[in-house]
Design a protein around this nucleic acid. Sequence first.
DNA 1: ATTTACCTGAGAATGATATTCAATTACACC
DNA 2: GGTGTAATTGAATATCATTCTCAGGTAAAT
Lengths: 143, 143
Amino acid sequence: MSEPEKQFADFLRSKGLKFTPERREILRKIFATHEHFDVETLFEKLKKGGERISLATIYRLVPLLIESGMIRQATRCEGHVTYEHVFGHKLHYHLVCVRCGKIIEFRDEGIERLLMQVCDKYDFTVIDHRLGVRGICSACREE
Amino acid sequence: MSEPEKQFADFLRSKGLKFTPERREILRKIFATHEHFDVETLFEKLKKGGERISLATIYRLVPLLIESGMIRQATRCEGHVTYEHVFGHKLHYHLVCVRCGKIIEFRDEGIERLLMQVCDKYDFTVIDHRLGVRGICSACREE
DNA sequence: ATTTACCTGAGAATGATATTCAATTACACC
DNA sequence: GGTGTAATTGAATATCATTCTCAGGTAAAT
């Protein structure tokens, strides 16, 4: 059993929930790549892979994955909600190209440090934070 | 005519669109305070103010307001989309309390500077950016 | 074997947002 | 001040993602 599966199975067990074959398959598809995903395309992928897992099952799994800390909602782009891995994926920020949709991820410890100073100042306990930049990537600007 | 009205009227004219009484009323309600808003509560406010403006009209106006640069989508909180002023409102970031929903706004030029350096590095042209921190405010932590 | 709690798929329900349509209105031009 | 044209409106309807309901399944605990 892979690392993400182990962690999630533990989480489920700790809540008295079950690690069913359906849940395993969904989890596998999600962690098969490091890409962001949304429910609809995940469902399509599973269907193409020959699985007969219903949309409802995926929708029911997502909150559990979030609660377990495996994934989180990503920077929201145009309309639908997308998710990204937390497990095995360090904190990072996004540059999102509004033309081609490409997402560049980056880290910046200076920004992190400044941000924590601000939160201290306001006596604010951080759970999570995100930074997203919308703009145009160099490739699209060339055109 | 107030500043926001002037700017938006100009924008509409430049696109061959009209600054109707309905649009003026909606704009006034939006800019009557500096608070974030969502379509539903805006609709309620207008109704209480005796206006008979339909939801559809508001939904149709929002994209125009965004395109004109008057407002933008704010940090998305729980479910529904909220908007905030851009006009007359300096760049800022958010601390959002997940318990009480309070939003603390702050600025930090150090973060801005570091961010611009990153974008330079990736040769990325910035249109807009946002930084949101989810967490628990001091008042809620007391409890 | 029975109980109990959890899971599932299918389809119906929901709720926010978008669209259609016929009637109305604003503005440019006469 | 009329008039034509394109934009705008409200109401109702449609759409779309997401959630819920329900009627079986299933696995582990008793």
